[in-house]
Design a binder for these strands. Structure first.
Length: 877
RNA sequence: GCCCCUGUGGCGGAAUUGGUAGACGCGCCUGACUCAAAAUCAGGUGGCCAAAAGCCGUGCUGGUUCGAGUCCGGCCAGGGGCACCA
């Protein structure tokens, strides 16, 4: 009898070695079978893996192993998002080279990931800091440049004063740098941009086709792209008031229906007209300077009062040349949205209303809400932005808002001034081009050279990669590339005269925008991709990662895929057909009396749910149990995967990660939960041991008939098979876990029952062997090492990692007789056993004969009997 | 302010998408084994009631329906995203 405990610590490395030696997870590009590409977001090599990684990679591994068992050619690669700031910080703090620091971390994390037993094709491993990788990224940059998808322009940029670098709009969260947390400043710099806005419309429209993405992510991207349809209107300026040469002011509006409610115009402080007007107006110039000094950092914007300054310029209303509108410079107008100018309709825009109330400009309501009296309707301090009927608007009166918009657009489109229409329909996007220049060392060098004579000269392809120099110092702030003597100063590739290399490096989000494509042919030395391989593998069938990349990484990758298509590197639009965003791993927090945090490893928790208390294990000092929060170093509520794997094994950690919480929600890491998972590992081991003893007596040939006990086992096995298969397909791992528990319970009960009844017939043994085989294959994607050990115990000389998913016998799922719940007036009162295919009349007759039903009816006929076949019966008394 | 999501036992969560609410796990209780503990095994575990019968029960509230955790209206609470975007 098998009484020994399963020794995960001994078994797990042993099986990992077998898998590796046999190379069974290596995907081949020439394998003719159908393909499946499952990918988890690759990690930043920060030092050690954390529980979030364990959760992420376990989920992907379950899918990969399941698909492999289904006979599919699976690509499941791993790499390193290896460029970035922390390597430079480490260099500054610890005097280690960023490269050494990064590769040390990669080595540690690789071996940690391997100890998880992931079915990864390590032959395709890539690191983005490897010149063999970024060489091709530089090639992509040059191709994009040639294709007009890259632009160099001066612009106001987000400057992170702590990291001393530029940030993209997407990297500014609540006015702060996404990594440093520092308040972001605005600076005017010349930068490289990827023209993501070229695809605004396409990126937006294609969101509708991504039906295997979470709605949440699609909504966030939709909002981020921010499409709005409106009208561009050219307001003529009163020549008597306009600065020299200025004749008109262009504005963009989505509310042209409210044109007769206009009270003022407003332009951004950095609008050219403002500068022109300020030339002769020192007070205005001072106001503009003041606005610019404050900048547009979010923090300031939110608290700043709306302020304006009358330029003295007057604009003429497009429908009434005698109607003059004052033009203000206002601190709340953004130069980089629309035209940097608006017309203000205070009655129907809260911000405009606040403005006029401050400067006493008044308002005219032009949209009357349904049910309101047009003569009485007035606006004081709350603008009305809803639908209604046009009033006070001359030829628009009586129209709906929609009709009025159409009428205004139609009229202004057909009115020509100069040689252009006064109004033009226009679509505007909130999305800005992606600024990729970073003033950092540890990133992919931008492959261009600045020459006094020739201007910007792309580095010739034969000179790629532009490799990072390794002899750099981090003894002062700023970019060491900028002060590197030989690397920076190079001859111009065109004219040969002394020139200067671009010292900015690329945003690290560029690195991760195409790595999924590189995995399809990572050995390719000549080109970023082999389009044949890329097109065959892509799009990624299932991508798994955190919700924090809903906009940044996922939007950039969608852009890159389109740009790579345009430059001939692959031929598809969307990189990720299926996206799954998993929840975080959270844990209780523990605080000592002095307010400092204690780690779970230091704390001993005792007592049941309602009387739980904690003490410091070493001293007995009482500890306050705090709220459950995301595992983080600062809260010290992390659990080290290495410790868990050393104590319980990787299978236990994997199993716990998948149980209980639905994968998209946060999972609470608890010691009890891990122990529960560990107990189940041991229970499965014992169960398979018992099953193996019975299975040994099984005949090779499948018996002709099965006794009820054997049939019950077979039904449980195939029922579990059907449910687990469906739930893996839908990534509902918590339900898979429940089904496997249920099946294991059923098999255990059947084996225990056998002793009493002495039912050791051939057919029973055969059913047990079949059930044990199915059980092991079913749990092997979640607990691969235990599965191999059990598989061997059952006498197989193959690997379960290479076993086929069992064939489902659907006949076993169908019962001949079924038990239907019987409701009386919608409340369950009884059960009735009927033939599965019994006619409704028969079911009704059987139900009416039931004692509880007769009692309820008391001799009267039922009002109604509803029979839902194979579901339920409801008697209405 | 706008948009989205989530509210089910002591806890994590199931519920075939309108058909037996609480699967499965954790925790707890009782028993067996043990000198004892651990492990394991057997049983129990939404509330009210001594128990049965019964009644109540999916954030609150109203509705639709033979039947509502699920659909509709109105609230409340928690979480997330966006936000001078014209």
């Amino acid at each position: 009898m098998m009484t020994e405990r399963y020794n995960a610590r001994e078994a797990e490395p042993r099986w990992q070695k077998v898998w590796e030696e046999r190379g069974i997870f290596v995907a081949r590009n020439d394998d003719p079978r159908p393909r499946y590409y499952v990918l988890e977001m690759f990690p930043y090599p920060s030092g050690r893996i954390h529980m979030g990684h364990v959760r992420n990679y376990t989920m992907g591994d379950v899918v990969a192993r399941y698909k492999r068992a289904m006979g599919v050619n699976v690509l499941h690669p791993m790499g390193w998002d290896a460029f970035g700031m922390p390597a430079e910080n480490a260099a500054m703090e610890r005097k280690v080279h960023p490269k050494a620091w990064t590769y040390d971390n990669i080595a540690t994390m690789r071996s940690q990931l391997k100890s998880m037993g992931l079915s990864i094709d390590w032959s395709r491993e890539i690191a983005t800091c490897d010149p063999a990788y970024y060489k091709h990224q530089q090639k992509l940059f040059l191709d994009f440049l040639k294709a007009g998808l890259v632009e160099r322009k001066a612009s106001k940029v987000n400057w992170d004063p702590v990291d001393q670098t530029v940030l993209a709009n997407e990297q500014v969260i609540d006015g702060r740098g996404w990594r440093s947390g520092a308040l972001v400043e605005q600076r005017e710099l010349t930068q490289w941009f990827f023209k993501i806005t070229k695809y605004s419309e396409a990126l937006l429209a294609a969101l509708d086709t991504l039906d295997r993405w979470p709605d949440k992510v699609r909504t966030m991207q939709r909002n981020w792209i921010g499409r709005s349809e409106g009208l561009l209107i050219r307001f003529a300026l009163d020549p008597a008031t306009a600065p020299n040469g200025e004749t008109e002011l262009k504005i963009f509006t989505t509310r042209h229906d409210t044109l007769f409610g206009a009270r003022f115009m407003a332009i951004a402080p950095d609008h050219p007209l403002a500068a022109a007007a300020a030339a002769k107006n020192p007070a205005l110039a001072a106001f503009i300077a003041e606005c610019k000094r404050h900048g547009t950092a979010q923090e300031i914007v939110e608290t700043a009062e709306k302020q304006g300054f009358d330029t003295g310029i007057r604009a003429l209303h497009p429908f009434d040349p005698d109607w003059r509108l004052p033009v203000y410079v206002a601190n709340f107008i953004l130069m980089d949205y629309g035209t940097g100018a608006i017309f203000g309709c205070p009655a129907h825009d809260q911000r405009d209303l606040d403005f006029v109330n401050k400067y006493g400009l008044g308002n005219t309501p032009v949209v009357c809400p349904p049910g309101a009296d047009p003569k009485q309707f007035a606006i004081t301090d709350t603008a009305y932005d809803g639908d209604g009927t046009m009033i006070n608007s001359r030829f628009l009166d009586g129209m709906t808002v929609e009709q009025a918009k159409e009428e205004v657009a139609r009229r202004l489109e057909s009115e020509i001034r100069g040689n252009a229409p006064v109004g033009m329909r226009q679509v505007n996007f909130r999305l800005r081009d992606w600024g990729i220049s970073r003033q950092r060392y540890w990133g992919c060098p931008i492959p261009v050279i600045h020459c006094e004579a020739c201007g910007i000269v792309p580095v010739p392809e034969k000179d790629l990669p532009v490799a990072l120099p390794e002899d750099v110092e981090f003894d002062r702030p700023g970019n060491p590339l900028d002060r590197h003597p030989t690397w920076r100063n190079v001859p111009c590739p065109q004219c040969g005269r002394p020139a200067r290399r671009e010292t900015d490096t690329m945003d690290t989000f560029v690195d991760s925008s195409w790595y999924f494509a590189r995995f399809t042919d990572p050995w390719n030395a000549n080109a970023p991709t082999d389009p044949k391989a890329a097109n065959a593998w892509l799009p990624v069938d299932q991508y798994i990662g955190g919700i924090e990349h809903a906009i940044l990484h996922l939007l950039y990758s969608r852009f890159f895929t389109r740009a790579m298509r345009e430059t001939g590197h692959l031929d598809l639009d969307e990189p990720f057909a299926g996206l799954f965003t998993q929840g975080m791993v959270v844990h209780e927090t523990y605080r000592r009396a002095d307010g400092s945090y204690a780690s779970p490893a230091e704390v001993k928790v005792e007592g049941a749910e309602d009387s739980r208390r904690a003490v410091l294990a070493s001293t007995g000092e009482p500890i306050e149990i705090g709220p459950i929060e995301k595992m983080s170093k600062s809260k010290r509520n992390t659990v080290d995967p290495d410790d868990i794997i050393a104590t319980y094994g990787a299978d236990t950690a994997r199993w716990f990660m998948l149980s209980d919480s639905p994968p998209e929600r946060d999972v609470i890491w608890t010691e009890e939960g891990v122990q529960g998972a560990w107990r189940f590992v041991q229970r499965l081991w014992r169960l398979v041991g018992e099953a193996a003893a019975v299975a040994r007596e099984a005949p090779d040939a499948r018996p002709q008939t099965f006794t009820p006990a054997a049939l019950a086992i077979r039904k449980a096995a195939h029922g579990a098979l059907a449910k687990v298969s469906e739930d893996i397909e839908k990534l509902r791992f918590n339900r898979c876990v429940a089904h496997i528990y249920e099946f294991a319970n059923a098999l255990q009960a059947a084996l225990a029952g056998r002793g009493d009844k002495n039912e050791a017939a051939d057919d029973f043994a055969w059913a047990v062997r079949e059930a044990a085989d199915i059980l092991i294959v079913l749990f092997h994607p979640m607990m691969p090492h235990l599965a191999e050990e059990c598989w061997a115990l059952l006498g197989h000389d193959t690997l379960v990692a290479e076993a086929s998913w069992p064939a489902l016998e659907r006949d076993l799922l169908v019962e001949d007789t079924i038990v239907l719940p019987v409701q009386i007036n919608g409340r369950k009162r009884a059960d009735v056993t009927v033939a599965r295919n019994a006619a409704n009349m028969e079911v009704e007759a059987a139900v009416l004969a039931l004692e509880p039903v007769r009692r309820a009816l008391a001799g009267k006929p039922p009002k109604k009997v509803i029979v839902v076949p194979q579901r339920i019966v409801n008697v209405v008394a």
